[in-house]
Nucleic acid binder design. Structure first.
Lengths: 352, 352
DNA sequence: GCGTTTAAGGGACACGTGTCCGCGTCAAGA
DNA sequence: TCTTGACGCGGACACGTGTCCCTTAAACGC
């Protein structure tokens, strides 16, 4: 078998050497054209360009990197690819990185697999690693230490309170302050919390914001809020919200407003209340969190908190790229993102 | 500056040579340990393993590939990362490939950028390329030709009717047959089509299925169906469905069932009908498409078509990997996926 | 036709890796 | 003490690339 393709179609060119042979030039000459070096006849340059377009030859990126070229790759660890806000962040980040000339290597970081994922990124010599989501604290902290030991910059989006981690997070306390002020202004004084029970790990957590707002208005947290999270298996989804709403209605001391951990729970609550023949927001107000697309499609449409994902990711890209050339920092970078309350139909004046 | 790290922490090891020096062994010895070659003392092996665990050293994947090791990478072209079914497919595919030892290089294929994306994949020497979504036909066909010229296998998920392309698609005709039979059995004879107007490009398109079912029952397509797509700007989203529903209500000859292109339109229609004080499914039936999570969260819950994404992707992974070692095929691989009708509350007997 | 300039040819090296092979070393057994 | 393995060392090469540098050939001016 000769190197020539018997079918007459172009042969598969896997190296500049083969490509140069195909064009009828020396490998070095082709290389000079590809890298825009001077001292070449225009005619030669065009000859190479034309062959390049015809054959679609691409230099081996791995060999380029071996010669010292940057990989221009960023590793992205996702908690999963099913949570809509996380996917939106991924989409935005991928686009932001692409715009800056980086490509994204995406892996789902299942519990216990963190080591393999990060090792894989390191073996690919990515220039940085981003974590999106919420991970097992010890595991992610160990991974971050490993990255730092290799001099690879990192960034954690959405998980606050990690030791020595560069972090970008939504200020959930500020979000809940906005929600609470909105409801307090509407006359509400009794609140049901759906899924919002995790003990605050920082001063930017939801409960912190709720506490602070009530205190500022001279109200007592325990007297004003009610939690029934223990009554049902906690899935933080539609069904969970639906069951919780029903449970709240069965209480003698019924809150006038429900605050949900996320939009799915809130929409479940809307359903639960609808099934009990309540009219919203006349009988009860409901607030979600995340401002997913569905929040504008429910009946009634859902008042919720927008995460400002575009802003988050723009900041993330900046923070990430600012680390690239720079020497490692002593102190981690911490950035907070301001959320925005989106008022829709599911909240209204408290019933007298 | 010496090579030793003055801070006392472990130095950054970027090659087996540096790592071997750090362990106090020859590079070749370390290499033999890493590749499990025989003729090594157990003690030496353990020494290397321990240092490996301590330093987290990883061999340079690019150099490995240069030496002939497979890249174990698959390129995935996405139309966008915002369409929920497309993202679900991506998530499932990423997981299926990971399970088989492949990692995923994901790029969004914006119109006109296809060439760059595919060139990038080729320069990374990916072992295969997958397209998920719906692309400009000429552009994707050109890209597929380019891939074939390079001997790189490909697979298109969800876009039917491409020349010489390996394709996996949902049989939308079968889907619509199931929908139509369900509705016909409920007594419906007059159907509104929301967004379903594109001329069929193959015998597996929706309109083909609708036509076929009506014909089999001895009914006339034009007499039974009504389309008002031209009345509104076509975004195929919630608002589009909402407006369309209102328009159908304004017709003198009002259909008893509405068939939507996707769930978003269907949910918009639910809203539009609710605003007109219609009760579903008493007054009207509505069917969506895709079986997104939201379809179970609406009021009433939505009858829709499930794409069987798990099955699609499992097939995709098989088809993809079967191409890897094999010689190129003369005929493209075409696979059809069977959809499943999911009946919920939004469909019921036709009003007399 | 001759000398000079210009451009392509081609050998060499480095990058990090796996692998082959010959050489040195050390310890155990005779 | 000598022989014999067993095992680690280190040089060499290849993979595909960019770049340096020297050589060769063609083109050009006179």
């Amino acid at each position: 078998m000769s190197k020539k393709n018997p079918s007459g179609s172009a042969p598969i060119l896997r190296s500049t050497a083969e490509f140069a042979r195909h064009v009828g030039l020396a490998r070095t000459t082709v290389s000079r054209v590809l890298n825009g070096q001077p001292g070449l006849k225009q005619k030669t340059i065009e000859r190479v360009q034309r062959a390049l377009a015809e054959t679609g030859f691409t230099p081996n990126a791995h060999a380029l990197h071996l010669k010292g070229k940057r990989t221009q790759m960023v590793g992205i660890c996702m908690e999963d690819l099913l949570t809509p806000p996380a996917v939106k962040k991924l989409a935005a980040l991928q686009q932001a990185l692409r715009k800056r000339g980086f490509s994204s290597l995406i892996e789902v970081f299942t519990p216990g697999m963190g080591r393999e994922v990060v090792r894989h990124f390191l073996s690919m010599r990515v220039e940085a690693v981003v974590f999106i989501g919420h991970f097992h604290q010890e595991e992610i902290e160990a991974r971050i230490l490993e990255l730092m030991a290799h001099g690879t910059p990192h960034l954690v989006i959405d998980q606050f309170g990690l030791k020595n981690a560069n972090t970008i997070s939504l200020d959930r306390a500020v979000a809940m302050e906005a929600v609470m002020n909105h409801l307090l202004d509407l006359g509400h004084r009794s609140f049901g919390l759906l899924g919002i029970t995790r003990a605050p790990t920082s001063r930017h957590d939801r409960l912190t914001g709720i506490h602070a707002t009530l205190k500022a208005r001279g109200l007592d947290f325990d007297a004003c809020t009610l939690t029934l999270d223990h009554l049902h298996e906690r899935n933080n989804d539609f069904d969970y919200g639906r069951k919780l709403a029903a449970s709240f209605l069965a209480q003698s001391r019924r809150p006038t407003a429900l605050l949900a951990l996320n939009d799915a729970i809130a929409i479940g609550a809307l359903r639960g209340l609808h099934e009990a023949d309540l009219k919203l927001p006349r009988d009860l107000s409901v607030v979600g969190f995340n401002n997913q697309e569905v929040a504008a499609m429910t009946t009634p449409t859902l008042t919720t908190v927008d995460q400002n994902i575009a802003g988050t990711i723009e900041t993330a890209a900046e923070v990430l790229l600012s680390q690239l050339g720079a020497p490692p920092r002593a102190k981690p970078i911490i950035r907070l993102i301001e959320p925005a309350l989106v008022v829709r139909e599911s909240t209204g004046p408290a019933r007298a």
